[in-house]
């Protein structure tokens, strides 16, 4: 992967539950600090679009999908452990 690659995220949330709100905030903060200017975030509310949750097999919320670059990665939870999230997303500082 190159430094220039665009990161596409989709975050499945449930209404305005606490977990979902935290995850949303954490994702935005993380993108700002590590992927400034090269990320896209789509927020999907499972209650508003349950069909998409079914198709994607979303059981737990919040669930973060990294759609690009491939392969698709999934992280469940509030994304509070930044280091772990970065490792999973391939944004480990060493790699960067």
């Amino acid at each position: 992967m190159t430094r220039r690659s665009i990161y596409k995220f989709r975050l499945y949330v449930a209404d305005d539950t606490m977990n979902s709100a935290q995850a949303t905030a954490n994702l935005h903060a993380l993108c700002k600090s590590h992927l400034s200017g090269r990320h896209e975030i789509e927020i999907v509310d499972v209650f508003k679009e349950p069909q998409r949750a079914i198709l994607e097999g979303i059981r737990m919320t919040p669930t973060l999908l990294r759609l690009a670059p491939l392969p698709i990665r999934r992280i469940v939870g509030t994304l509070m452990d930044t280091q772990r999230v970065l490792e999973t997303l391939g944004l480990d500082t060493k790699v960067v």
Binding site: A14, P50, A53, I58, R59, I75, G77, M80
Partner: peptide, 23 residues
């Protein structure tokens, strides 16, 4: 559940309930 699932922090079952509700 996918046991390889990476999990950080708290989560809930709303995703499942939303899907189930529709079905």
């Amino acid at each position: 559940p996918n046991f390889d699932l990476v999990q950080t922090g708290d989560f809930d079952l709303c995703g499942m309930l939303a899907g189930l509700g529709l079905q």
